[in-house]
Amino acid sequence: MSHKFENSIFLILLIYNVLWVFSCISPFQITINGIIAGSIYALIAIGFTVIYRTVGFFHFAHGIVYTAGAYLAYAVISGWLLVVGSQFLVGMWVVVIMVGIAGAGVLGVLIDRAVYYPLRKQKASNLIFLLASFGVFIFLQNLIQMIYGAQILTIRTGPVKEGHHFLGAVITDIQITILVVSIILMILLWLFIQKTKLGKAMRAVADDPVAANVVGINPERIILTSFAIGSALAGAAGILISFETNIEPTMGFSPLLKGIIACIIGGIGSIPGAVLGGFFLGLAENFGIWKISAGWKDCIAFVILIIFLLLRPSGFLGTKTEKELL
């Protein structure tokens, strides 16, 4: 165990040193771009991990919760502009983030209650759960498309300003918001998992569901909590990205894949691993396309995934072997 732990630390240091070398020889802007992209990947990956740890299957509908978060933000902002009328106050952004995160959490719980709970009652296999989660993804994506149409929407309507100059790079207010909010959410999650009773119970269920049940932890309650928290994080990522880019019903799939890759790189089931994996992926993609053509961006992510699956399937921090993964 400790041998493996040392190995992981060594690997992380090695890889992040390589990234550091890259950041020294490329413009600082690329590092910034990578960190911002990475923080979104990390948020999705953490949410995915929180759910995966308690239920043990790949919850693909996580990607549509991300999309729903963005559309919720859109709905709240259009509502705000109708009711309050005034343009973009700080208070509005806070309300948007709060409502969006809460709404995404509720959506996650609803998905679990409506689809996964009946399947759990029937003791369905993990494959069934996987297919069901794809079904939920497609269903909700089409639902969003029915309500809002396929066209692209945008929340940003104000004038476009040049960002702040910072060590030769340019960073915008929105990007700072993305970074700060995602770091706050990561810290809150860490505190929750480490300090609260519910968080400890979640860890217990992740470690050994049978033993947790024996000592009186209600697994259903833990599953609901995981879905609420995990989905809230995905929703937060969706809201943050909606401040920055356009939103459309199909926006969720690619970030979902990146989030899952980040999970696997970081070690599936490990929350710190998801954070490391997310930032690593964001940086690697952006450093990669600094030297080669940007059309290869997605390819870089998948090549990294394949390298990890071949050489180190347990990722940075994972303790499970590849057999247990499947």
Partner: peptide, 20 residues
């Protein structure tokens, strides 16, 4: 000459290369 895949929404790295 820089490029991007359709559906992408982050072009900053390409634009940074162009800016250089």
């Amino acid at each position: 000459v820089e490029n991007y895949h359709e559906g992408a929404n982050d072009f900053r790295t390409q634009l940074t290369k162009i800016k250089e």
